[in-house]
Design a protein around this nucleic acid. Structure first.
Lengths: 125, 125
DNA sequence: GTCGTTGCAAAGCGTTTGCAGCCTA
DNA sequence: TAGGCTGCAAACGCTTTGCAACGAC
């Protein structure tokens, strides 16, 4: 049976507070503000547990380490900042993709990744 | 100045002969057929060199190791078959994406990955 | 002969696992 | 009290780097 430890609570709150996909390093940093001696192995184990139980969704982007976000959000894409390397959500949905699908292929899903500068980094440049 | 070694030649030919994206392990295996003692570090270094000079293009897909293919293709997206796990090219380009970009963000590039069944697997199902 | 290149081994880096002790239920 | 959970450190797999020897030009 699953237990509610201080560590698991801190990790959950890290996702709830930021509202964007987080990598393990970001989770460790955020959750350590609450639980000082938190170890990276605990972050990995809890992320896996939370993903297995459906509380988290894995966000895999090309050439990047896996990130995770709370499951059950509206349809959205992801925007990856080339400067700070953070990932943000980009709500919305593009139209028909059928003209892109080769003949005979059956389309089930799609993932769109936007690259550029986030508002923070764009303002600094 | 760049030199034409047996190792580099074998690695180039591995790509030319197969005509599809290859990972480092596949390159090592194929090129070792020509150059027995070929080391994995040499494969990595040559792939980087060939990519830097524009002879290779990096193909990165979510949750997969990087692959490389000979440069010079038209603009295209990638279609990944969930059944046979092969990756295909999907020529074309979607229209405006500006309505997806959050306020203050600056869009530089985008990538679209389609998931589903390729013609071959769809026909079998 | 120069100096780019190679193979080996060691070092990184992100992730997983073994283990003894801790703590939630 | 039982056994899930934690932190530490070592193990992992993949990639990069240091280094002395090699070989293309």
């Amino acid at each position: 049976m699953e237990r509610n430890t201080r560590q698991r609570g801190a990790i959950r709150r890290a996702f709830q507070r930021t509202g964007r996909p987080l990598g393990t390093g970001e989770v460790l940093e955020l959750a350590r503000a609450e639980v000082g001696g938190l170890g990276i192995a605990t972050v990995y184990r809890n992320i896996r547990t939370l993903a297995d139980e459906g509380w988290l969704t894995v966000v895999e982007l090309p050439g990047a380490v896996a990130r995770y976000e709370i499951h059950g959000k509206e349809h959205h894409y992801h925007f990856r900042c080339r400067q700070c390397d953070r990932v943000f959500e980009a709500p919305g949905c593009i139209g028909s993709l059928t003209e892109l699908v080769p003949p005979g292929f059956s389309l089930e899903d799609h993932e769109l990744v936007l690259y550029g500068r986030c508002a923070e980094c764009a303002a600094l440049a």
